[in-house]
């Protein structure tokens, strides 16, 4: 069994990773980190004593970050928990660009833990 954490761009990213690490520890599982941002993941966020696999978003198949996460869940049947970071968005921003976290909450086939950044 594995926990998958999807790391978004911005300040909600590091708390999501932290929550993913805590969830994996609590469940006693491995951690898969899917980096949805467009730059390499900050390795210092990951502990040494947990078995982690980092997956980078790359290529036209991953153009849509929500699709990239859902594909990863489909490819890894042992993933039983999804952890995501989310933040408040303006209605205009949501209307123009959609909300990745909303789609993941609604479309994920497995339970989702949604984490907000500290206020």
């Amino acid at each position: 069994m594995t926990v998958l954490v999807a790391v978004p761009e911005g300040r909600e990213g590091p708390p999501a990773v932290a929550a993913g690490v805590a969830e994996a520890r609590m469940l006693g599982t491995d951690l898969v980190v899917l980096n949805m941002t467009l730059s390499p993941l900050d390795g210092s966020l990951l502990p040494d004593d947990l078995k982690t696999t980092v997956v980078e978003r790359s290529g036209p198949g991953d153009r849509d970050p929500a699709e990239a996460v859902l594909d990863e869940i489909a490819d890894r049947p042992d993933v039983e928990r999804l952890v995501i970071g989310m933040r408040r968005r303006t209605p205009v921003g949501k209307a123009l660009l959609g909300s990745v976290s909303q789609r993941l909450l609604l479309e994920s086939p497995i339970p989702v833990l949604a984490v907000k950044p500290p206020a």
């Binding site: 849509d64 970050p65 660009l97």
Partner: peptide, 17 residues
């Protein structure tokens, strides 16, 4: 070349992009 095509419209939500 495939990696250059990673970003899509959703990523316009990111400020530095």
């Amino acid at each position: 070349e495939a990696a250059t095509k990673t970003a899509g419209p959703t990523d316009l939500g990111v400020k530095w992009v």
